[in-house]
C-alpha cells in the first residue's frame, strides 16, 4: 500500500517534469549560444577591453560615455528613421501589394517577382544596388542624358543616403512580409466579409473594418519581425556606405560594430549592444504580453 502510493507520487512527479523536457533542446541550445553570449557582452559592457589585453572594469563608465557621445545620439536617430521606414515600406507597402495581388489572376507571377530580391543575401543585394546607385551607375546615366546636377554619387550625400538605403532595403525585404500577408488574406473566411458587404461596407472601409482586424495575428508576426530587424539594421548599411560619410549614416548596430571591432573598444560596443537589446526586448514584450493573458 505504502509502496504503491509513493510510486504513484513518483509517477505524478515525473508527469510534471515531462512537459519541461519538450522545452529542453531549445532552451539548452539557445542558452549555450545566445544567453551565454548575452551575459558575456553584459560583463564586457562594464569593462574597458581591446580584445587583446586584460579587461579593466570601469563600472558604468561606458554607459555614461554613451549618452554623451554625439555619434551615439545621431545613430539612435538614424535607427529611428530605419524603424519608421521599415514600417512604411516592408510593412505598409507590402500590405498594399498583398491586397492588390489577391485581386488579380496572376498571383504567383507577382508573388515571385516581388520575392525575387529576397532570394539574394542582404550583402549581395547591397553590392548590386551600390553599383547601380554610385558614380558609374544611374547617376552617370542621368549625367549622360543631360541631368548634370544629378550626376554625383548619391550614396555619399549625408542624410539622403539613409533614405536611399531604407528604400533599398525595402526593395530587398518586402518579399517575406508580402508572402505572409497573402497567406493571411487568402485564409480569411468569406462569411464575415460577405456579411459586411451586405451591410454596405465597400473598398477601404471594408478593409479597415473587417479585413484588417482579421489579419491581426499575421500582422503581429510581420510587425514584430520587421521591428526587430529594423532595430538591428546592419548589413545593408555596412555594404552601401559603411556608415559614412563621417558617420552620418550609422545605425546603432553599425556604431556598435565600429566601436567594438574597428576601434577595438569592445566594452563600449557591448554597452551599445545592451542598450539596443533592452529596447527591442521591451517593445517585444509590449506587443506580445496580450497574447499571454489568461495563459497561466
Amino acid at each position: 500500500m505504502e509502496i504503491a502510493k509513493s510510486k504513484l507520487s513518483m509517477k505524478s512527479k515525473l508527469g510534471k517534469i515531462i512537459p519541461y523536457l519538450y522545452l529542453a533542446p531549445s532552451v539548452i541550445l539557445v542558452g549555450i549560444f545566445c544567453i551565454y553570449s548575452d551575459v558575456f557582452s553584459l560583463i564586457v559592457s562594464f569593462a574597458e577591453w581591446d580584445g587583446l589585453n586584460e579587461m579593466k572594469f570601469i563600472g558604468f563608465q561606458n554607459y555614461m560615455n554613451m549618452f554623451q557621445d554625439p555619434n551615439f545620439l545621431l545613430s539612435s536617430l538614424n535607427t529611428l528613421i530605419w524603424v519608421v521606414g521599415t514600417l512604411l515600406i516592408p510593412v505598409a507597402i507590402a500590405l498594399l501589394f498583398a491586397i492588390a495581388i489577391t485581386h488579380v489572376k496572376t498571383q504567383s507571377f507577382f508573388k515571385t517577382v516581388f520575392y525575387l530580391p529576397n532570394a539574394l543575401s542582404q550583402t549581395i543585394a547591397g553590392i548590386i544596388l551600390t553599383t547601380i546607385l554610385s558614380t558609374y551607375g544611374l547617376p552617370h546615366l542621368l549625367g549622360v542624358m543631360g541631368f548634370d546636377s544629378l550626376a554625383n554619387d548619391w550614396l555619399t550625400v549625408p542624410y539622403l543616403n539613409t533614405l536611399i538605403m531604407v528604400v533599398s532595403s525595402g526593395w530587398q525585404g518586402i518579399g517575406l512580409n508580402l508572402i505572409l500577408f497573402i497567406v493571411g488574406l487568402n485564409q480569411i473566411p468569406k462569411e464575415p466579409i460577405e456579411a459586411a458587404r451586405i451591410e454596405g461596407a465597400q473598398g477601404i472601409k471594408l478593409y479597415r473594418k473587417v479585413v484588417l482586424p482579421l489579419l491581426k495575428p499575421i500582422m503581429l508576426i510581420v510587425l514584430l519581425m520587421s521591428l526587430v530587424n529594423s532595430f538591428k539594421s546592419f548589413d545593408t548599411i555596412w555594404v552601401m556606405t559603411n556608415g559614412g560619410p563621417y558617420r552620418t549614416s550609422e545605425t546603432l548596430a553599425v556604431t556598435m560594430y565600429k566601436e567594438a571591432f574597428v576601434n577595438n573598444q569592445l566594452g563600449y560596443g557591448s554597452a551599445i549592444a545592451m542598450f539596443l537589446s533592452v529596447t527591442v526586448l521591451i517593445i517585444s514584450w509590449l506587443l506580445l504580453r496580450d497574447t499571454f493573458k489568461g495563459e497561466e
Binding site: 544567453i35 553570449s37 557582452s41 546592419f234 567594438a260 571591432f261 549592444a273 527591442v280 526586448l281
Partner: peptide
C-alpha cells in the same frame, strides 16, 4: 530573446 540581441556581438 535569442533573436533580439545583435548577432555581431
Amino acid at each position: 530573446s535569442g533573436t533580439i540581441f545583435p548577432f555581431q556581438m
